[in-house]
Amino acid sequence: MTEQPIIRVKNVTYSYPYADKPALNKINLTIQAGQWVAIVGHNGSGKSTLAKTFNGLIEPQSGEIYFNGKLLNEETVFDVRSKLGIVFQNPDNQFVGATVADDVAFGMENNGVPRDEMITRVEAALRQVHMWDYRHQEPARLSGGQKQRVALAGVLAQRPQVIILDEATSMLDPQGRREIINLMTQLRQDGNFTIISITHDVDEAALTDQLVVIDDGVLVNTGTPSELFADPEQLHRHGLTVPLSARISQQLRTADYALPDRYLNDRQLVDELWTLHSKM
């Protein structure tokens, strides 16, 4: 992992027009290729704004963004957009195509991919998210989870290097959420994608390699989930809920119980407790 980072954010500051304080304040961040990164922070902390700077949807007032070492500017922006796909929060308002297959093709159409190639890629992408059977349907008629899978297929068909999910699971029911998270886990195993999840879901955040904490436009901390969950107080101060299991583990560790140093979800914690118990 010593090669150049896939995304490098250098001193980026951005204020929305008429806003009294910046939505992003001197952000510095490096994302390595192949990593799964979660960006967390309370509502309105600037997560979506940050994601939008990555592909030039928003142009920061100062600072630079580098994608694969290349500076993001008017010349490189379309290239970046073809290599960095975003799935947005609201599943309803991101469909352009009239049918599922049409919509998946939209990005490729924009990039002038020849039609024969589009046909194979649409099929491959829809199969990957298990939505091929729905190819002739209107996106509006699908369930929330299915919509997000189609949106993901649209991103996958572009053969991106980076996939950003901006709270893509927040409007879904637990079932739909699980579908998407399972897909992401799978994608991570068999592709060499860099995945950036913007999320409020601690269980999803816990699966990632790197956590980035943002509070009021400032990047306050970054590290592995277990490093950050180890200090629930700090996360709490930035308006984030820490999983109960993490808080309990933390208390137990300070009380000198020999728990492993990584984040444990409920199940894992219970297992560890049984192990401890049997050793007593």
């Binding site: 939008k52 957009r81 975003i86 991101q94 352009v96 049409d102 990005g107 159409e109 039609r115």
Partner: peptide
């Protein structure tokens, strides 16, 4: 929302577009 989605999927104008 739709415009944001379209722009981030690389929509510019008609030139050089292909059709599915």
């Amino acid at each position: 929302d739709l415009t944001t989605a379209m722009i981030s999927r690389g929509y510019r104008d008609g030139e050089g577009r292909t059709r599915y």
